[in-house]
Amino acid sequence: MHIIALSGALRRASYNTALLRAAAALAPDGVTIEVRTLHGIPLYDGDLEAEGIPAAVTTLREAIRAADGLLIATPEYNNSIPGVLKNGLDWLSRPSGEGARLFGGRPVAVVGATPGGFGTVQAQDAMLSVLRAFGCDAWFGGRLMLSHASAAFDADGHLTEEKLLNQLRSFIEGFVAHIRHRSTA
């Protein structure tokens, strides 16, 4: 099984990208989690789209299309998903109808990390509207909203708290079970 893990942050030391790297390290046997970012994807512009879909969008789209599932890690900016993540998802849904073709029925799970105290509750809730529009198979079997992320990771970006590692492991195992159940149903 292959899962694409998409970080909604661009920062080199992003807690969300680090969370996805930790998820990849905790993947069950037979499962690979490939961490991707939105680097290289320009701001959406209809004129640019008319010239052709950017290569970074096409590359990410094809990776998602080939995967068994998609795990999205979203920061929370101003009580919602960050613009860079929404922009990337908007590009992936272009041209019109591509969002339903790419995401329709695809198993998707959402996690998030933030230095703030409320986790990524509102960002994850905001993702629901986008996921609903795409018609994906959003997995709600678990929620992982890491708050106070600066205390959870060491200077090298490794998740160090055993309790959080266990939560993340359980989350990934649940998402993998969801994907497997879908493929046998």
Score class of each variant (00 low, 15 high):
residue 50 A to G: 09
residue 96 S to M: 10
residue 28 P to T: 02
residue 60 L to H: 02
residue 82 P to V: 13
residue 96 S to A: 09
residue 89 L to T: 01
residue 31 V to R: 07
residue 88 G to C: 15
residue 120 T to S: 14
residue 69 G to W: 03
residue 117 G to W: 14
residue 75 P to I: 09
residue 146 L to W: 02
residue 105 G to H: 12
residue 180 R to G: 02
residue 36 R to G: 08
residue 30 G to H: 07
residue 34 E to Y: 06
residue 28 P to W: 05
residue 40 G to I: 05
residue 35 V to L: 08
residue 165 L to V: 00
residue 63 A to S: 13
residue 37 T to W: 01
residue 123 A to V: 04
residue 118 F to K: 10
residue 136 C to I: 07
residue 55 A to V: 07
residue 133 A to F: 12
residue 97 G to Q: 06
residue 76 E to N: 06
residue 59 T to G: 02
residue 42 P to D: 02
residue 48 L to P: 03
residue 110 V to R: 04
residue 170 S to I: 14
residue 57 V to N: 08
residue 74 T to N: 15
residue 166 N to E: 14
residue 38 L to C: 03
residue 96 S to F: 15
residue 65 R to V: 09
residue 118 F to A: 12
residue 89 L to R: 03
residue 27 A to T: 00
residue 82 P to C: 07
residue 91 W to G: 12
residue 71 L to N: 10
residue 146 L to R: 04
residue 114 T to E: 04
residue 71 L to H: 11
residue 158 H to F: 06
residue 52 G to K: 01
residue 128 L to S: 09
residue 182 R to M: 11
residue 3 I to K: 05
residue 175 F to S: 01
residue 19 L to A: 01
residue 33 I to V: 15
residue 178 H to L: 01
residue 35 V to M: 01
residue 18 A to V: 12
residue 119 G to A: 05
residue 154 D to A: 04
residue 109 A to E: 05
residue 23 A to G: 14
residue 88 G to S: 10
residue 62 E to M: 13
residue 127 M to D: 04
residue 132 R to G: 13
residue 131 L to Q: 00
residue 70 L to S: 11
residue 91 W to E: 10
residue 133 A to Y: 07
residue 89 L to D: 02
residue 18 A to E: 09
residue 38 L to Q: 01
residue 88 G to P: 12
residue 1 M to E: 05
residue 8 G to D: 10
residue 47 D to I: 11
residue 138 A to C: 10
residue 47 D to M: 03
residue 125 D to I: 10
residue 88 G to D: 13
residue 2 H to V: 07
residue 15 Y to R: 01
residue 134 F to G: 11
residue 107 P to G: 11
residue 130 V to M: 07
residue 25 A to H: 14
residue 86 K to C: 10
residue 44 Y to T: 15
residue 141 G to K: 12
residue 112 G to R: 02
residue 14 S to K: 02
residue 23 A to E: 07
residue 85 L to P: 10
residue 82 P to F: 09
residue 133 A to K: 00
residue 166 N to K: 09
residue 2 H to C: 00
residue 107 P to E: 07
residue 27 A to F: 13
residue 167 Q to F: 11
residue 154 D to Y: 13
residue 5 A to V: 03
residue 91 W to M: 10
residue 126 A to E: 09
residue 47 D to P: 02
residue 153 F to G: 01
residue 87 N to C: 09
residue 70 L to N: 12
residue 40 G to A: 02
residue 13 A to R: 09
residue 40 G to H: 00
residue 131 L to T: 04
residue 85 L to K: 08
residue 172 I to W: 05
residue 23 A to C: 07
residue 103 F to C: 13
residue 143 R to E: 15
residue 13 A to M: 06
residue 176 V to Y: 12
residue 168 L to Q: 08
residue 2 H to W: 00
residue 25 A to R: 12
residue 53 I to L: 15
residue 91 W to T: 14
residue 150 S to G: 05
residue 7 S to H: 01
residue 182 R to T: 06
residue 147 S to I: 00
residue 169 R to N: 08
